[in-house]
Simulated assay, not measured.
Amino acid sequence: MHGIGDVRFFDRFAPIYDLVMPAAEASTLNAALERADVPVERVVDIGGGSGRATLALDVPERIVLDVSAGMLRRARARGLDCVRGDARSLPFGAESVDAVTVVDAFHHMPNQQSVAEEVYRILEPGGVFAISEFDPETMLGRGLVLAERVVGFGSSFATPQELVQRLDRVGFDATVVETGFEYTVVGKKRESH
């Protein structure tokens, strides 16, 4: 899911990750899930790391999927269901999930097109793909892009409109629901593709 250097960093960083990262914005995430045309009962948080965003979701079944074993240990310690895996090959059946989230992690994922296609495959029609990311065109975003290059991450950032276009190409009906340094895009799986 992440570049090799990114995974090693997060494995090492896992013990202190939650001490330095702010809590996820629960209201934004839950508002994004409310855009689904189906009841949201099962959510997969891909690149979910320690589960900090997953905990903010108000749904019965929450699953953290990540490639970092260190981050998943943190999520399991919080009582969350965890799956170690790659977002480009999700270990879930077709149309088996009501919503998928990615919070602050999509830019770490190589081949984002494949990730979006996999999410589309596992989503129920009317389900949603909610992505919270950093806008590389904001002042803070430009600083983050530079910082991640210095650290050696293989990050690939997109503006909100670029992300909407990418999701639309896969078959989602995508829209920007929040703008700023951290923005949120929601793609709804259309009934027919």
Rank of each mutant, 00 (worst) to 15 (best):
1 M>S: 05
5 G>D: 12
8 R>C: 00
9 F>I: 05
10 F>Q: 05
12 R>G: 03
12 R>P: 00
16 I>A: 02
19 L>M: 06
20 V>E: 13
20 V>P: 06
23 A>V: 12
24 A>S: 11
25 E>G: 00
26 A>H: 08
30 N>I: 14
32 A>W: 11
34 E>W: 10
38 V>C: 10
39 P>G: 06
41 E>I: 05
41 E>V: 05
42 R>M: 08
43 V>Y: 12
50 S>E: 07
51 G>I: 14
52 R>K: 12
52 R>S: 00
55 L>F: 01
55 L>A: 04
60 P>H: 09
61 E>A: 01
62 R>S: 01
63 I>E: 13
71 M>H: 06
72 L>C: 06
76 R>G: 02
77 A>F: 04
77 A>Y: 07
87 A>W: 13
92 F>Y: 15
95 E>I: 04
95 E>Q: 14
95 E>H: 14
100 V>C: 09
102 V>K: 03
104 D>T: 10
106 F>G: 00
107 H>A: 01
108 H>G: 01
109 M>Q: 06
110 P>G: 04
112 Q>M: 09
117 E>G: 01
118 E>K: 12
119 V>I: 14
128 V>Q: 12
135 D>P: 01
138 T>N: 03
142 R>P: 00
143 G>F: 12
145 V>Q: 04
149 R>K: 07
152 G>R: 11
154 G>P: 03
161 Q>C: 01
164 V>M: 13
164 V>N: 11
165 Q>Y: 10
166 R>E: 11
167 L>E: 07
170 V>W: 13
174 A>T: 10
175 T>K: 13
176 V>C: 04
176 V>S: 02
182 E>Q: 03
186 V>D: 12
188 K>N: 04
189 K>Y: 11
190 R>H: 03
193 H>M: 12
